[in-house]
Amino acid sequence: MADFFLGHYAYWFTIILLCIGLYGILFKKNLIKKTIGLAILQISVVLYFVSVASKWDATVPVLDPNIPVDQVANYLNPLPHTLMLTAIVVGVATLGVAFTLLIAVYNRYETLDEEELIDKIQ
């Protein structure tokens, strides 16, 4: 049971964070809040990948001459780390675009509250 918990709690927390992000997207009326929810959602997935990359008793994926590479278990899996570097940058780009659009929306309607926006559009 303890093993099961240790092996899975990281996933559960990821999912909880994911749902906090989804909560922000679904329930918050303010568009900046929605964006914050989006950022949380994205980072939680990054967290998932990073947490599956880990191995007990392994070192960071930078070659240490004292630790042999042919024992794979000595080093953390570098692949998810690489993927997540990409994912983080993608996330930042998305946020940048979201901010750009937010400013454009605010210039047009002088508000970022979803209900007021819908009122003003109609």
Binding site: I25, L31, L38, A98, L101, L102, V105, R108, L117, I121
Partner: peptide, 10 residues
């Protein structure tokens, strides 16, 4: 359009 695009983005 920007608001529609923002909703699509989210």
């Amino acid at each position: 359009a920007p608001y529609a695009a923002f909703r699509y983005l989210i």
